[in-house]
Nucleic acid binder design. Structure first.
Length: 928
RNA sequence: GGGCGGAUAGCUCAGCUGGAAGAGCAUCGGCCUUACAAGCCGGAGGUCACAGGUUCGAGCCCUGUUCCGCCUACCA
C-alpha cells in the first residue's frame, strides 16, 4: 500500500476537546472508509509465491458460496464473522492467507426468480426459448448478482476480491465438464430410467437431500379389493388395503402381505380386482410389509412410490404411470379421470369408491410429507430418465478420511457425517431446467450413439463419429451442488493448463478449514470431500468447523416467511458492524444453537464505545508522544508501580488466552477474555490508577505510565482486531508510538503482539487483588451506610496480621486508595487501630477502619457486619465439612488439601477479626 | 424407529481435563467524579430439570426419568 492512500481518519465529526477523536464512536463512516481502503489497496490479496518459495505458510479458506439470488441473513453473518476472525488472526501469525469469495448459480432458485419476472410480463420461459432465457438470467445476474457480495463487503470480510468466483464462470464450468467426463469414463456416472423425487412446480428431479420432510395431517383410506373369481374357500371375500393416496390406485400392480401373516396366508398367489379399473392384481408376499400397520395389506404402485418401486423390481412387476410430470392424471388413467389434477382426482376416486361400496372408512392420519426445499411444494415420486452418480466408491474414501486427514469440530458431528455416507444412495444429478451446467453428452439421432466429452460441440460439427448422424445435446443441466462440490479446487484454477498447475492451487490446496453450518453437511461438505479426494488425491480441507444455526429469541429457525428474522444489515446500520461481529463471536460456543437477541447486540455496541473512549483518553494524555516509546524502552519493571506491573502481567495472560482460543475455535472465549480485560481491568482499574501519574508532574513516573498505557492499548487493538476490525483499525491509525516495524502499515497486516516473559508478575497479581479488596471494602461501606459520596473519609489500616506485601502495597499506593475510595487521610501500619465507632472490614488479614462518628448513624454498620459474618459462616461451614469429611485428607491431592487448609485459616482469621470489630462497634453504640 | 443436543440468576447464555457458582441485559440504591450517562460506584438475585450412583469431593463423570429442540428414516 502507499503512504498517501491512508484514509483520512479525523473526518467523522468535529474534534472535541484536545482529542482527535469524536466523543462517541460513529461506525458508518469508519466502516465505509476502511472497507474501501482495504479493497483498493488489495490488502487481502496474498502472493502465492510467498508460499511456493517457502517464505510463508499457507492458510486458506473458501467461502461457502451463498446463493446468488440470496440476501445476507444472520447465518451468513455468523459464518463470515468466524471465517474473518480466523483469517485476520492467521495473518497476524505470519501466514499467507487466501480467503476465496464467490457465489453459486443456484439453478432452480435463480430460474424461479427470472421466471417470476417473466410472468409479470405475461411470458413463459418457453416463449423465449432456451438461449434467450439464459441470456435473460445472465442479465439478471449482472444486475442483482452483486447484492450479496456487497453485503459480504459490509461485514468487513477480509476476502481476496481478486479471487472472486461464480460457479457458472468459464473456468468453473470447465471443471464441471472435466469432472463429469472423467466420472462417466470411470463408470461412476450413468443414465437410467428410475423413480426420483419430482417437484411438479419446479418441474425437475431433485436429489434425496433436497427433499424436506414436514409433518402433515392427512387421511388414511381403507379400500376393499375383492378376490377375483369370488370368495376364497374359507369365505374371505376381499382384502382391505390402507392408503394415504387413493388416486394412485389407478397405477396399482399388486397387493402385498407379510409372508408370515397368518391372516392372509390363503390369499398369497391369488388375484384381487383393482377397484374402478377392474384389472386383476396378484397378491404377493414380502417381508417389507408391516403387519402392524393398517390392515397389513399394502397396495403396490411402483410408478408413484419409492418403496413400491423397489418392490416392483424385486418381484418383477410392471410399472404403470398414471400421474404426469405436471401432476395431472395421464392417458393410463380411466377416461373419467384423465386430465384431472391429482388432488381433484383423489376426491372423485374416493366419492366413486364410496358410491360403489368399496370404501371401508376414512381416518385421520398424521404422516410426514416430502417438500421441495426450494419452493415447498409437495414432492411426487416420479419415474423418468435421469443421470446419477454412483456414490458408494466415492463415499468410502470420504468416510475413511475422517478424522485422519480431515478433523471435524466439534467432533460429535462425525457421527452424522458417517451415518449419511454409510447409507448413501446414488445421487440424481440431472435437473430439468435451463439455468446451469448443461450435461456434456450428445446422442446421435440416427444410431443412438452417446458421446460424452468436455470439448465444445463445435468439435462435433461433423456429426456422429460412428455414422455421421446429427448429434443432439442433453437438455438437462446438472445439480448446482455438483459444481459446488468442486469449489475448493475449481476456484483455485483446476484443471488449469496441461502441465501447468495453477500456482494458487499449488500454494493453497488443501484448504486449512471449512467453516459452515451443520445443515449443509450432506449437501456440500460430504460431496466436497468425495470430489476433492477423487480428483485432487487429497482432502479439500484439514479442518471442518461446523457452527450453530442462528435462531430467534424463541429458538425458532429464522426465516423470512415467519417474519422472525433479524436482518444483519439492519443491525450493522443500527449498532455498527463491530458490535454485531462481537455479539456473534461471543455467542459462537461450539455445538449450540444461537438464539440471538437484539439487546445483546446493543450491549456490545456499548462495549465498542467504551473502547473508543478509552482510546480518546489515551490520546488526550499522550500528546506528541514520539515513536518507539513502547514498554521495551522502560528497562526493568520490578520497581515499577503496581498498576503498571499488574496490567502488563495481565496483558501477557490475555495474549495466551486469545491465541489458544483462536486456534481451537473457541470464539466465545476470545470475546469473553477481551471483554473482561478491556472493560473490567484496563478501563475500570488501570486507567483510573494511571490518572494519578498522567495528571501529575512530568517525570519518570509519568513517562513510564504513558508508555504502559500506550503499549497496552495498542497491543489490545491488535488482539481485538480479528473480532472488531473497524474500530481497532481506526484507533490504531491515530495512536502514536506504533512499533517502528509496523509504522505506517495497516493494523490488518500487523503481527501478533510479541510475548514479554519479563512482564509476567504473579506477585503483582496478588498485590493488585489485595489493593482492589481494600478499595472495594471502603466503597461498600460508603454505599451501604449511605455516606455522601462526595464526603472524604479517613482510613486506618492495621497490617499486623496482613499478607507480607500488604504494608508495602498500601504505602506505595496510598494516594490511589485516596483517589479511588475518596479517602482524605490514610494511617497505615502494624498495630494501628481506629475508633470503636468505625465501619470495618478485613482484607487478607489487614484490618480496615473507617471512622464513622459524626458522619453517619453507624448503627447500620452492626447490621451490615452481621450480614458479612453470615456469609463467612456459610463458607466456613461448607469448608469445615469438606475438610472434616472422612477420607479427604487421605485421598485428595496434597496441594489441594494444603490450599483448602490455607483457605480455612484465612476464613477463620477473617471471621474472628470481623466479629471482634463488631463487638467494639457494639460497645461504642451502647455508649451512644 | 434411529441419532444428536439442551434443561445453570427474571431473560439470553458462559462454565476447558471434577477441587469454594460467572457475564450481558433486566432489577434495586447512590452518583452529570474533566475518556465514556452508550458512563461510574455499590447491592440483591441460583438445593446448576428430577431421582439414584461413582468419588474424600459432582454443574461437570455414570444410570434412569420428565420436558424441549434439531437431524435422520421406506409404516402405506
Amino acid at each position: 500500500m502507499s503512504e498517501n492512500s491512508a484514509p483520512e481518519t479525523h473526518n467523522t465529526g468535529p474534534a472535541s476537546g484536545e482529542t482527535a477523536l469524536p466523543k462517541g464512536y460513529e461506525p458508518a463512516d469508519v466502516e465505509a472508509r476502511w472497507g474501501r481502503h482495504w479493497e483498493e489497496n488489495k490488502t487481502f490479496t496474498p502472493d502465492p509465491q510467498d508460499v511456493l518459495s517457502g517464505k510463508k505458510e499457507p492458510f486458506s479458506i473458501v467461502i461457502p458460496p451463498p446463493n446468488v439470488t440470496g440476501a445476507l441473513h444472520m447465518g451468513h453473518a455468523l459464518d463470515l464473522t468466524v471465517q474473518d476472525i480466523l483469517c485476520r488472526f492467521m495473518r497476524q501469525q505470519g501466514k499467507s492467507v487466501l480467503w476465496v469469495p464467490g457465489t453459486d448459480h443456484a439453478g432452480i432458485a435463480t430460474q424461479n426468480v427470472v421466471e417470476r419476472q417473466l410472468k409479470k410480463e405475461g411470458k413463459k420461459r418457453d416463449d423465449l426459448g432456451r438461449e434467450k432465457f439464459i441470456e435473460r438470467v445472465w442479465d439478471w445476474k449482472k444486475e442483482y448478482g452483486d447484492r450479496i457480495l456487497n453485503q459480504i463487503r459490509s461485514l468487513g470480510a477480509s476476502v481476496d476480491w481478486d479471487s472472486l468466483r461464480f460457479t457458472m464462470d468459464e473456468g468453473l464450468s470447465r471443471a464441471v465438464r472435466e469432472v463429469f467426463v472423467r466420472l462417466y469414463g470411470e463408470g461412476l456416472i450413468y443414465k437410467g430410467n428410475y423413480i426420483v423425487n419430482w417437484c411438479n412446480r419446479c418441474h425437475t428431479a431433485l436429489a434425496d437431500d433436497e427433499v424436506e420432510h414436514a409433518p402433515k395431517k392427512g387421511k388414511l383410506y381403507r379400500i376393499r379389493y375383492a378376490f377375483a373369481g369370488g370368495p376364497l374357500p374359507d369365505g374371505t371375500a376381499e382384502l382391505i388395503v390402507a392408503t394415504t393416496r387413493p388416486e394412485t390406485l389407478l397405477g396399482d400392480v399388486a397387493v402385498a402381505v407379510h409372508p408370515e401373516d397368518e391372516r392372509y396366508a390363503n390369499a398369497v398367489g391369488r388375484k384381487v380386482i383393482l377397484p374402478i379399473v377392474g384389472t386383476e392384481l396378484p397378491v404377493i408376499a414380502d417381508a417389507y410389509v408391516d403387519r402392524e400397520f393398517g390392515t397389513g395389506c399394502l397396495k403396490i404402485t411402483p410408478a408413484h412410490d419409492m418403496n413400491d418401486w423397489a418392490l416392483s423390481k424385486k418381484h418383477n412387476l410392471p410399472v404403470i404411470t398414471v400421474i404426469d410430470d405436471r401432476g395431472f392424471m395421464n392417458e393410463n388413467a380411466p377416461a373419467a379421470y384423465r386430465g384431472m389434477p391429482s388432488a381433484a382426482c383423489r376426491e372423485k376416486i374416493v366419492a366413486d369408491l364410496d358410491a360403489a361400496g368399496l370404501l371401508v372408512d376414512v381416518t385421520d392420519h398424521d404422516h410426514s410429507v416430502g417438500e421441495c426445499y426450494r419452493c415447498k411444494s409437495v414432492i411426487e415420486p416420479h419415474v423418468s430418465e435421469q443421470w446419477f452418480v454412483k456414490v458408494a466408491p466415492l463415499a468410502k474414501a470420504a468416510r475413511e478420511a475422517v478424522p485422519a486427514q480431515t478433523q471435524i469440530f466439534p467432533p460429535n458431528w462425525e457421527k452424522t457425517y458417517f451415518e449419511w455416507l454409510d447409507n448413501i444412495r446414488d445421487w440424481c444429478i440431472s435437473r430439468q431446467i435451463w439455468w446451469g451446467h448443461r450435461i456434456p453428452a450428445w446422442t446421435c439421432e440416427a444410431c443412438g450413439e452417446m458421446i460424452v466429452q468436455a470439448e465444445d460441440p463445435a468439435d462435433l460439427a461433423h456429426g456422429c463419429p460412428k455414422c455421421g448422424g446429427a448429434l443432439k445435446q442433453e437438455d438437462d443441466v446438472l445439480d448446482t451442488w455438483f459444481s459446488s462440490a468442486l469449489w475448493p479446487f475449481s476456484t483455485m484454477g483446476w484443471p488449469g493448463e496441461k502441465g501447468k498447475p495453477a500456482p494458487k492451487l499449488q500454494a493453497y490446496y488443501p484448504t486449512s478449514v471449512l467453516v459452515t453450518g451443520f445443515d449443509i453437511i450432506f449437501f456440500w461438505v460430504a460431496r466436497m470431500m468425495m470430489m476433492g479426494i477423487h480428483f485432487m488425491g487429497e482432502v479439500p480441507f484439514k479442518h471442518v468447523y461446523l457452527h450453530a444455526l442462528v435462531r430467534d429469541e424463541q429458538g425458532k429457525k429464522m426465516s423470512k416467511s415467519t417474519g422472525n428474522a433479524i436482518d444483519p444489515l439492519a443491525m450493522t446500520a443500527k449498532y455498527g458492524t463491530d458490535a454485531l461481529r462481537f455479539t456473534l463471536a461471543s455467542f459462537a460456543a461450539m455445538g449450540r444453537d444461537i438464539k440471538l437477541s437484539e439487546k445483546r447486540i446493543e450491549g456490545y455496541r456499548h462495549f465498542v464505545n467504551k473502547i473508543w473512549n478509552s482510546a480518546r483518553f489515551a490520546l488526550m494524555n499522550l500528546p506528541g508522544e514520539p515513536k518507539a516509546t513502547l514498554v521495551e524502552a522502560m528497562g526493568a519493571t520490578q520497581d515499577a508501580p503496581l498498576a503498571n506491573r499488574w496490567i502488563l502481567h495481565r496483558l501477557e495472560e490475555v495474549k495466551d488466552e486469545v491465541e489458544s482460543a483462536s486456534l481451537e475455535y473457541r470464539f466465545n472465549d476470545i470475546a469473553q477474555s477481551l471483554y473482561r480485560f478491556i472493560w473490567n481491568e484496563f478501563c475500570d482499574w488501570y486507567v483510573e490508577m494511571a490518572k494519578a501519574d498522567l495528571y501529575g508532574p512530568e517525570g519518570p513516573a509519568k513517562e513510564a505510565t504513558r508508555r504502559v498505557l500506550l503499549t497496552v492499548l495498542s497491543e489490545t487493538m491488535v488482539l481485538l482486531h480479528p473480532v472488531m476490525p473497524f474500530v481497532t483499525q481506526e484507533i490504531w491509525s491515530v495512536l502514536p508510538g506504533i512499533p517502528a516495524e509496523n509504522d505506517g502499515k495497516e493494523l490488518a497486516l500487523a503481527p501478533y503482539p510479541v510475548r514479554r516473559p519479563q512482564c509476567r508478575d504473579e506477585q503483582a497479581a496478588r498485590d493488585m487483588a489485595f489493593f482492589q479488596g481494600v478499595v472495594g471494602s471502603v466503597r461498600t461501606i460508603r454505599t451501604e451506610l449511605t455516606i455522601d459520596p462526595a464526603k472524604k473519609l479517613p482510613l486506618i489500616v492495621d497490617t499486623a496480621d496482613a499478607m507480607d506485601s500488604a504494608q508495602a502495597v498500601l504505602n506505595a499506593n496510598a494516594h490511589l486508595i485516596a483517589q479511588l475510595a475518596r479517602i482524605e487521610s490514610a494511617d497505615i501500619g502494624p498495630g494501628k487501630t481506629g475508633p470503636r465507632a468505625s465501619g470495618t472490614a478485613v482484607v487478607e488479614g489487614a484490618r480496615l477502619f473507617v471512622p464513622l462518628k459524626g458522619i453517619v448513624d453507624f448503627g447500620a454498620e452492626v447490621a451490615r457486619l452481621d450480614k458479612e459474618l453470615g456469609k463467612l459462616d456459610k463458607q466456613l461451614t461448607a469448608l469445615r465439612g469438606k475438610l472434616a469429611a472422612p477420607g479427604f485428607a487421605g485421598h485428595a491431592p496434597a496441594d489441594i488439601v494444603a490450599a483448602e487448609n490455607e483457605k480455612l485459616a484465612g476464613l477463620v482469621d477473617a471471621r474472628a477479626k470481623l466479629a471482634e470489630l463488631q463487638e467494639r462497634l457494639k460497645g461504642a453504640l451502647a455508649e451512644g
